[in-house]
Design a protein around this nucleic acid. Structure first.
Lengths: 167, 167
DNA sequence: CCCTAATAAGTTGCGCACGACTTAATCGCG
DNA sequence: CGCGATTAAGTCGTGCGCAACTTATTAGGG
């Protein structure tokens, strides 16, 4: 644990009001290392890279893994709802889902009650893959090496940031 | 998705379990929403999306903007050192730098003292662009809507995570 | 009932990201 | 000095990620 000040970040809602608030200090810098956005971008790619060998063993890319997580959680979801869950456009999902279908993990079937909608259904192979994937979150939790408190704080801040920025 | 018309959300500090939902199993879970990696992935894309209109005005993509930040900080850097700073491979940077050169922002010159190395030098247009970019970090700091404490905590945690995972 | 608007999924084009590989220059050891 | 190993940059192929657009289907007001 080499990080002081990484504890709970928003205990007693001591956040100043934001109506016309002055710019926070360091936000005006053009220095690469000062920018939260760069820390975020670098961390995201580093974590994805760490997943790669684990997912290679399952013959999945990282976005494909996220799709499988969503389907293991709720089978027979529509492309639309999947896009909402992952915050991805159909132009990203359509080719990706085609590849998962070609790899035999799912089928795409037009819904009878609304021919515009496509339901995604796991195949037996897709269901079975879940067992082999069970170890992945644990291994990644290990690799990321954050305490439960740091993990929770990070998730909270990232979700807050996403919500703010999505307006 | 969240409350309309309001500024950045404040978010509940202690996220309780959703009512009626199964307990958040946290680390070994296969649930999408439990995973730090997904929060990270979603946040990174959301932030980049928020940059897009600002950077469109400068005719830059987000990775191109990061390259320009690095060059404004230290001109005449080598492709190698730039790759170290941004944690990007030459196979990513080479085409990107070609586009920046084609757009007249920099020149690539082989170093006389080591013909393997290529130095990146800002053109006048590249230097001038810095003035127009001054407002970007401020606007983004505003949009991200984190307190200075939250911003600092997020950066710390992300850098710790990157370091752990890059091992 | 029609006709326009909306919605869902998909296609296309472009720019990353990265692994695997290539080319060319420098290093360093015998 | 010679020459294999290392290093720097780049090419190529694949898979996202997203804007702009297309196609097909459904919804809904007059």
């Amino acid at each position: 644990m080499s990080t002081p000040g990484a504890g709970p970040a928003q205990e007693d809602a001591a956040l100043p009001a934001r109506e016309g608030s002055p710019p926070p200090t360091q936000h005006g810098s053009l220095l690469l290392e000062d920018q939260l956005c760069f820390a975020l971008y670098a961390a995201s790619r580093a974590v994805t890279a760490r997943y790669r060998p684990l997912l290679d063993a399952l013959d999945l890319t990282y976005p494909q893994y996220l799709v499988m997580l969503a389907l293991w959680e709720q089978d027979s979801i529509s492309v639309r709802d999947l896009g909402t869950a992952l915050q991805l456009e159909s132009s990203t999902l359509s080719p990706l889902l085609k590849r998962l279908e070609a790899n035999g993990l799912l089928r795409r079937e037009r819904r009878a009650e609304d021919e515009r909608s496509v339901a995604l259904r796991l195949t037996d192979a897709g269901v079975r893959l879940r067992d082999r994937a069970e170890t992945v979150p644990l291994a990644m939790g290990e690799a990321m090496g954050l305490t439960p408190e740091q993990d929770a704080t990070a998730k909270q801040l990232l979700r807050l940031l996403t919500a703010n920025v999505t307006r």
